[in-house]
C-alpha cells in the first residue's frame, strides 16, 4: 500500500499505554491496535505518507527499513481488512522495499 491512507472517521480511538483501542460506531465493533499499529496510526493521523511513516519508524526503531516496511504494510493491510481506512490504496506499485509481506 502506498500514498497517504487515512483512518476512517466514525471510529472512537483511545490510546492505552502504547496500544490503541477503537470503537467503530457504525459497525459496532471494537478494535485493538498493537504498539506498532498504534505508532502507524499516529503517523497517518499526523498526515504522513506511508513512505514517510516507514522512514520515521525506521529511524526510531533501529530495525532495517525492509523490516519496518513489512510491519507497516501488515498494519495497513489489517486496518484495511477491518474497514478502518478512509481511502482505498493509491495506484499500484511496490514500495521501496518490495511488496507488503
Amino acid at each position: 500500500m502506498t500514498g497517504r491512507p487515512r483512518l476512517r472517521p466514525g471510529v472512537l480511538w483511545v490510546d492505552v499505554a502504547d496500544e490503541r483501542v477503537g470503537y467503530d460506531e457504525q459497525a459496532g465493533r471494537l478494535h485493538l491496535l498493537s504498539p506498532v499499529g498504534a505508532a502507524v496510526a499516529d503517523l497517518l493521523e499526523s498526515g504522513r505518507s506511508v513512505d514517510e511513516a516507514v522512514d520515521q519508524l525506521t529511524g526510531a526503531s533501529g530495525r532495517t527499513r525492509g523490516e519496518v516496511e513489512r510491519a507497516v504494510h501488515d498494519v495497513l493491510a489489517a486496518l484495511a481488512a477491518a474497514g478502518l481506512l478512509q481511502d482505498r490504496p493509491g495506484p499500484a506499485g511496490p514500495g521501496p522495499g518490495g511488496p507488503a509481506g
Partner: peptide, 25 residues
Amino acid sequence: TPGAAVLEMARSCFGWPGTARRDLP
C-alpha cells in the same frame, strides 16, 4: 496488555454503545 483489558472491559460495560464516548477513556 492494557489494550486487551480495555477491549474486554468494554464488552462488559452496561449502557454500551451509548456510553462509549465517555467510557472508553
